[in-house]
Amino acid sequence: METLRNFGTTAPGVVAIAAFAAFAALACSDQGDVTTEPPPGSGGAGGLAGPGSGGAGGLAGPATSGSGATGGPSATDGSSGVVAGAGGSGGRPGTGEAGAGGMGATASGSSSSGGETRSMGCDGTTAPTSGRFSIDVGGTTREYILAVPDDYDSSRAYRLIFAWHPRGGSAEQVATGFGGGYYGLQNRADGSAIFVSPEGLDQGWANTGGRDIAFLRAMLDRLRAELCIDQSRIFSTGFSYGGMMSYAIGCAMGDVFRAIAPMSGALYSGCEEGDSPVAMWGAHGDADDVVPLDNGRTARDVFIERNHCDPQTTPTEPSPCVSYEGCDAGYPVVWCEFSGGHTMPSNFGESIWSFFSQF
């Protein structure tokens, strides 16, 4: 298995890259059980298949670019796209900070109502259907799977949730497995969210030269233009390499993402300098011998500092999770160290949805 390199700007904890080079591809059942792969050489080319099938080509749907031009227009800054939050006061417009009694918006859009920041795609006459799509990013074709609610209404602003696969996994694996799809979030969202499962290069998300963050920005431009998204409620989650990508997103795009939920991740995909707070729920096994716990703690500490949290914690559900005290209003940090190795906690779907849905 090749050694990872060129992770861009790194933060403390990158010394463990050598350990990560031994990353195992991960398998999952329909119930979301996760085990590590046999030694390199036995897994076969192409990584894991999605539960039950996972054949090349993934979900049915357009095989190329989907609707809309590559990249698509992005929302522009303007007073119509900045709101203080329903009933809120004291929040600084455009910063994402919460005012008293409300939640600040983080991004601009075509219009706003009820504390939302609505994207350019709201009230559109057409929208992509669920399926696999491709997009050109700097001359490289990248792919993602999109899941739009069956009763999608272009006048309603939806949460947008990105779910990133582990090393050796696939977009199809995330879209159909891990507790019922998108890490168990899709069935809990009950039609209130749009989901995206991107396809990684070289089995994951090394973010070499910032290529994966560029991919994310291109997807966001297109999705904002084509779908009705609440831009103040954009989220990211993932396990292992997917957790690393979620940490990288929190570092680079805290002004865009409302919250992240990395599992068994680290800063191996880079951490751009920045000071934008982002709410975080994180989990890591105390016996992880693939991504050491200390590397997960180092990543966690970046967001404890960004959100101005105190070192003191209080227990929170589910046990043994803790919540850091004194964080900026609206930007909590919850940390769950569980007994186990390089895997996901048993209650990951319920816990992540509970965290995301509070925003």
Rank of each mutant, 00 (worst) to 15 (best):
L267Q: 15
V291I: 14
G282V: 14
R297M: 13
L293Y: 11
G282F: 07
R297E: 15
L293V: 04
L267N: 15
D301W: 00
D301V: 00
V291S: 14
P292Y: 11
G274N: 02
D289Y: 06
V291Y: 06
D294V: 10
V290A: 08
A299L: 01
A261T: 14
H284G: 03
V278A: 09
R300K: 14
T298M: 13
R258D: 09
R300A: 10
D288P: 03
A287Q: 14
I260Y: 03
P292M: 08
N295W: 00
S264C: 08
D288E: 06
D301M: 03
G285Q: 05
T298H: 02
E273M: 03
T298A: 15
E273D: 11
D286L: 07
R300D: 14
G296H: 05
P262A: 05
V291A: 13
P292T: 15
A287N: 11
W281S: 00
R300Y: 10
V290T: 13
A279L: 07
P277G: 04
D286M: 09
M280Q: 08
D289S: 14
G285N: 10
G285P: 07
E272Q: 12
I260S: 07
N295T: 11
G285D: 10
D289F: 06
G265M: 09
D289A: 12
P277W: 00
